[in-house]
Design a protein around this nucleic acid. Structure first.
Lengths: 272, 272
DNA sequence: GTCTCTTAGTTTACGTCATACACAGTACGA
DNA sequence: TCGTACTGTGTATGACGTAAACTAAGAGAC
């Protein structure tokens, strides 16, 4: 490994390198490292002893099924074990802790990203396709957004989604550093602007009707109407909806187009 | 109350009205309604019986203090009670459930929004000020982002933040319905794009060093480098950083300007 | 002033959770 | 064949949210 001075110089001039990251990785908390390795390393089965009755992936699938059907609060080690036909403690032969299991279901639960088609010139359409896919994925598994994302180990599917977004952005002619910025913008908007839909999806998964969810949200927002502290927001709430009502998906789409307008403006100013 | 036909016609033509929302509110789940009322109604103390030793706000402050100092997982009824000098069960005299306490600390924890200055023409600067304030708030209390936001009752501070954002947007000349869209975009971007910083803030609150957080994140992202499945994203990771390195705050700011560019473009096309 | 009834906080208890530890049964490699 | 490494189980522990029954406090009725 290069000396400290060299490494620092490299960092200043060239940004994050493989060596830099691996150097950092050496200092990682052992438990986190273990959790991360579980996501990446092919597990080589020991030859001695009884054969495991199931695979780690069976455990993950059972856990995901429970979260999908009954929500994150129903996801207990006992419930996972019962689904498989084990006692709770047997799960610990597959994952060292519940957090490690969470890591696995986050990555597997995200699923494969939309297939990164080869660059075809229309980066806006490709990025929009990606954003819709991500939004749909988050709504299909609303429990994903309940887990603290970024600190958890990022698995192959996670990076796969980022790669799939990078592909169309690479055709814009932006510098790699700028592309990194655009990834933050698009992913940030997609996640943040999907929150309301995710909340609705969560209510649905709990077996509640759309109407009861709307009632709860409407009742709270409705407090603004007539309250002298929130005059302008009340005006927004009671505004006519300009023609046909917008679904949440259309709303998301409209906002995405504004965000992409902003990005396109930058691309034009920056590449030309 | 007006007949069903009239109400439906009104809804189609005029968007969400006070009556509509209040009608919906009548159908709300009783427990949620109770939780919501706790956030809004002035609590009138009974005259009979012993005086309560503390106020509900004392309980909320104790809970917030624990979450701030030790994170959400340390926030137990026993811990809150111990801070006050009670046993756990006494807390239930102030809040009917832990979820109701969560509602309260979410709203109080958000704090007052930045003061909505009277419209001064520069809506971009005002909106940016709002976004920075919201981001700073979320980073100062990273446990807020761990709670499922939207489904919980929205209290006065929550609406206050929305009002504060609506004020500068109202000076753009956009229709109220369009302003509602812009609110979604800006709030969505702000929340989503702050996630990484919030995660770092959470690590700090746990007493971890910035370096160890960076090591964990770097180790995971670093797996992309050299992996044939993520060639383009790896290129982004290893890219030179074009001059001085950007802090996360500068990154957020850069993205916000792109988003505001997109909104401004729409304003110009739509108002002119 | 005494009695009564409402309310505040405590005690005890229950069911559930993650998980530690010791064990029993299993099947490969020697 | 035997030892040993491994799988899944049984049992236990301490923490959690909260239900129910309790004790004690204090204002109004007489």
């Amino acid at each position: 490994m290069a000396g400290k001075k060299k490494a620092a110089a490299r960092r200043r001039g060239r940004g994050l390198t493989h060596d830099d990251l691996m150097t950092a990785a050496a200092r990682i908390d052992p438990e986190l490292r273990r959790r991360s390795e579980l996501l990446w390393d092919d597990r080589t089965l020991p030859t001695r002893g009884p054969k495991p009755a199931v695979t780690p992936d069976d455990v993950v699938q059972a856990a995901i099924q429970i979260a999908d059907r009954q929500g994150l609060s129903a996801l207990t080690m006992q419930a996972v074990a019962a689904t498989i036909g084990f006692t709770a403690m047997a799960i610990y032969r597959y994952f060292p802790s519940k957090d490690a299991l969470y890591d696995a279901i986050v990555d597997v639960g995200m699923g494969r990203p939309p297939r990164p088609t080869e660059p075809r010139g229309d980066w806006r359409a490709e990025v929009a396709r990606w954003a819709h896919a991500k939004r749909a994925m988050l709504c299909a598994r609303p429990w994903l957004a309940e887990l603290p994302f970024v600190a958890a180990p990022h698995g192959p599917n996670w990076l796969g989604w980022l790669e799939a977004l990078t592909v169309p952005l690479s055709t814009t002619g932006l510098s790699p550093a700028d592309i990194g910025q655009m990834i933050s913008i698009i992913d940030g908007y997609t996640r943040g602007a999907s929150d309301t839909s995710i909340s609705l999806a969560r209510a649905r998964a709990r077996g509640e009707s759309d109407a009861s969810w709307a009632a709860a949200v409407g009742a709270d927002l409705g407090r603004a109407i007539g309250d002298p502290r929130f005059p302008r927001f009340a005006a927004v709430l009671t505004a006519p909806s300009d023609g046909q009502p917008r679904t949440m998906e259309e709303s998301f789409d409209f906002g995405l187009e504004r965000v992409l307008d902003g990005i396109e403006h930058y691309v034009r100013a920056s590449v030309a």
